[in-house]
Nucleic acid binder design. Structure first.
Lengths: 348, 348
DNA sequence: TGCGCATGTGCACACGTGTGCATAACGTTG
DNA sequence: CAACGTTATGCACACGTGTGCACATGCGCA
């Protein structure tokens, strides 16, 4: 029971100021019942001894830790990292701290993570695009603490969540391609992420449907592959074999689009002259790839921020909501008008 | 004083099992003095009531929180994010949790961060490439807790730290360029980050010096600009005006190299045929840029991991060390042999 | 039987903070 | 002058866990 780090406590301050520790506690917390003179003296002593309140002790008695847990799949993904940045910023602004945990989509890690967060008695939880989201009901029960999901992939639950408008974004970028004159399009999908995949696909189809099947020809490709990059390359290969050959690819996300882009380059195709390729997410790489990617922007930082604010609302007793964040079209140069090329005419 | 979340405590278990709470505490912690039968019964009851230990209460009495603070400048930088991932992984493996804090290199934020970490009574602190590192002595005193610095930019202190071998990496990539036949080189620097800048520059110069000034011509460019991208572009502009014109640019980091690359493209120059460009860091963008960047790899994840292990060592009473992490040359296609072109001959 | 020892358990306190209630001092009013 | 309200403070307990020490029990041995 030896004390390792001997920091001044309110009892020490009380002794120095000649009052009881309760008076110190109240004075430092700004209780108006303490006389101005006493409060001033106490604050003076506190500053003199370098008093730093002990969060754990306070948490013990108040049953509030002022800590939120943030569970992500992996921080290696810059997409996730920016969401984390948004959460951290908003949390700090409200006097909360962020306990970071990585699930890596592994069952064992997830279990350990939940256990850790339970032991630390976090006030609330934010979970991004993880499998954990699927079992959020279980989570809620286990931790007994409000949970907010970001870009949750589980279909059909009605937790509090912040999601990008997958449908609207995909529809908008597809409409953009149609307005450029494209009449044969393909969607390169990613069934691993069921919810956003089906929503983006629906948005793609909705835009095409508005012109009608006699006017425009569209279909969905589901290439297999280890990661998005591979699937993108596979999507391009599949597209090249289609007749009529698509003049534009709407890819599930930017990494898929970049995969398709690199593969197109290998096939000696010029983007966008020979084929237009668009993505979704607007990751940093989209700017540097050549040509820069036309895509749909997700305001990741803001999404992290509003997730925290929603969590704060839940903690204050407000009901949960399902917030849809609008997506914004970013026009760069990977999409252009379809070349009325010999190849294309020939294909017909 | 109403309890919000009523969780079972060891006292509840004690009541159910008909023992004292001390016995429960000892049994759950594996104290051998408790008889096997009692311990088994207690564990059974604990599982039945869904007991979850209260980390804050334990921290209060043991004076150890099993939490480390991790201070970063910004998570928006994927470079930083991967270090965070490495720290988190190692910490979790050792039963520690990570409290994340962003300083944004702003004085006010830093103050708030330190205050927060002090209140939470973190056991130790890891600081990455921040201005905070410069005042680590002050930090140490204020928090009274071991600190490990990653890629610290402050020159001349001897804290525990993990650093990439800036000198060795820059020397290796420069030697590679020389081996390709380049004889006129420029280093595009970034004086904002004094320590790594001067070390990389020294590595560059050391490699060149080995061939000697009569054999090879080299110099350092210090373009101004808002960010690395701009400085890279500026570096290229400056290089184009030099006589003899450098055939290869060694850039402070990948973002600078990418800036130079994009600018070269705008000037109608072919990389690497007209000019070779290499970077440092091996960020993800380096793979996707066109042509893919030859660069020096920093094992960020591993560096985060060893920073945590060092911190654990400090907590166990081991002395601080200054670990230099070897950098590895990554050959891609932004560097090639210098064209013995008309332009170059003409310039002489 | 008395003594010493090993084993198992409980008592009581500690950690630092917050708060309901009692109380003391003081001023106001009937 | 007494009753009462207001203001300022302290007492005592609570939160959940860990641990030094005392103590009870049982066993072996002189």
């Amino acid at each position: 029971m030896r004390r390792v780090a001997a920091r001044a406590s309110i009892k020490d301050i009380a002794r120095c100021a000649g009052v009881s520790h309760s008076t110190v506690s109240r004075a430092l917390r700004g209780d108006r019942r303490i006389s101005a003179a006493t409060a001033a003296r106490i604050r003076e002593v506190a500053a003199a001894v370098g008093y730093v309140p002990h969060a754990a002790a306070r948490a013990l008695v108040t049953c509030r830790s002022a800590v939120v847990g943030l569970v992500v799949t992996t921080l290696a993904d810059p997409f996730v990292a920016e969401i984390v940045a948004g959460v951290e910023e908003a949390a700090t602004l409200s006097g909360y701290s962020v306990l970071l945990a990585t699930s890596a989509n592994e069952e064992r890690r997830e279990l350990a993570v939940v256990r850790m967060l339970a032991e630390r008695r976090v006030d609330g939880l934010i979970v991004t695009a993880s499998r954990l989201g699927e079992r959020y009901g279980e989570l809620l029960q286990k931790l007994g603490v409000p949970v907010v999901l970001i870009n949750n992939q589980a279909i059909g639950d009605y937790a509090s969540s912040v999601r990008i408008d997958d449908f609207g974004g995909a529809k908008e970028v597809t409409a953009f391609l149609l307005s450029l004159g494209h009449r044969s399009l393909a969607f390169v999908g990613c069934p691993d992420r069921p919810r956003s995949h089906s929503l983006r696909r629906s948005g793609f189809e909705a835009a095409c449907s508005e012109l009608g099947p006699e006017e425009v020809c569209w279909q969905t490709l589901l290439p297999s592959g280890q990661d998005d990059l591979e699937r993108g390359a596979g999507g391009l290969e599949m597209a090249l074999k289609l007749r009529p050959r698509p003049t534009a690819l709407v890819c599930y996300n930017d990494m898929t689009a970049i995969g398709a882009l690199l593969s197109a380059r290998e096939h000696g195709l010029n983007v966008p002259a020979d084929i237009s390729i668009v993505g979704f997410d607007d990751i940093r790489e989209a700017t540097f790839v050549c040509p820069p990617l036309t895509t749909v922007h997700q305001p990741r930082r803001e999404m992290g921020g509003s997730a925290f604010e929603m969590l704060q609302g839940l903690l204050a007793g407000q009901p949960g909501r399902d917030v849809l964040v609008p997506a914004r079209l970013i026009v760069r140069s990977s999409a252009g008008p379809p070349a009325c090329s010999a190849a294309q005419l020939h294909d017909r």
